[in-house]
Simulated assay, not measured.
Amino acid sequence: MSALRRAAVLGSPIAHSLSPVLHRAAYAELGLRDWTYDRFEVDENALPGFLQTLGPEWAGLSLTMPLKRAVIPLLDEITETAASVDAVNTVVLGQDGRRTGDNTDIPGMVAALREHGIDEVGSAAVLGAGATASSALAALSRVCAGEVAVYVRSAARAAQMRRWAERLDLAVRIADWADAEQALRAPLVIATTPAGVTDALAHAVPERPATLFDVLYDPWPTVLAARWSAYGGAVVSGLDLLVHQAVLQVEQMTGRAPAPLDAMRKAGEQALADR
């Protein structure tokens, strides 16, 4: 009989997370009957204590907000990808107790874009300046040949985005949120804002929009994504991102590759339909 192996997603709030659905679908498809994947409500204050309770049966953790930066001092090492944006969403736990942090959001974004035929763009626009926006900049450093316009709502966030751009060696122009309608003319628009924030921009979608990558997946479609599709533009969804980053997590935690992308996506779509 095989030994039980465990993984989980941590965050606060966590009840909405689709990660258990995606990872369990992967385990079922891969025949990993002795693997379990759970969710735990854990905030920054509880994180150190939670990590101390983990035994050798634990293989890995997925992290969502607000833990992606809080976890870094608690790890033995982090990858260059995670270090590039100071954010870890994946922890691989060695049976010797070693904790390695990675960021699969960045290659997950790149993979989601490539699945939709976007290998390179001449310029791009990012709506928002939070943690997801920094991952978007890192992804764009791999696919955007020219300037990225970032539309922000505060001077502090503007300074933060400039720091990320400098670190990533990416040509970034900071723009005021009041001019965000202009972003919609870019060859690639990445919307990283919370639900509802971009609704007011939907009326400004151009007649022939290019590609919108909206990182939300619930509710879906967003008002902006629905208008974009109606005008014939290509749309990459937050579920695309979630599935692609989870594929990479499954491969790292289980050592099995390739992870079953199609089965994971179908499970995610069904879970969203059931909500």
Rank of each mutant, 00 (worst) to 15 (best):
D119K: 14
E251R: 11
D119E: 07
Y37L: 01
P260W: 02
R265M: 13
A3H: 08
G196L: 14
L18W: 10
A159T: 04
W58H: 02
R227A: 15
T132E: 05
W35R: 01
R114G: 11
G60T: 02
R39G: 06
V243I: 05
L170F: 07
G146D: 06
R153H: 01
G233S: 08
D169L: 00
A82T: 04
V205S: 09
V9D: 06
G97R: 12
I72C: 11
D86V: 09
P206L: 11
G117K: 14
P20R: 04
E44D: 10
G128V: 15
P219W: 13
K68E: 08
P187M: 03
P48K: 13
R167S: 03
A149P: 00
E251M: 00
V21S: 05
D176E: 13
D119L: 12
T36E: 09
A257P: 03
Q95I: 10
R157S: 09
A15V: 10
P219G: 10
G122R: 13
V85W: 03
P73F: 12
R5T: 09
P13E: 05
G146F: 07
E115L: 14
A195K: 15
A200F: 06
P206V: 15
Y27N: 03
S123L: 10
M264S: 01
L10P: 00
R256A: 03
A111L: 13
D179H: 07
V223A: 13
A226E: 03
E80G: 12
A136M: 08
A165F: 01
G108E: 05
N45C: 07
W228S: 15
R265I: 02
L137W: 02
R33L: 15
A259H: 01
P221R: 12
M253E: 14
D43V: 07
A87N: 02
R185V: 12
M264L: 03
H203Q: 15
V215R: 08
P187W: 03
L201H: 14
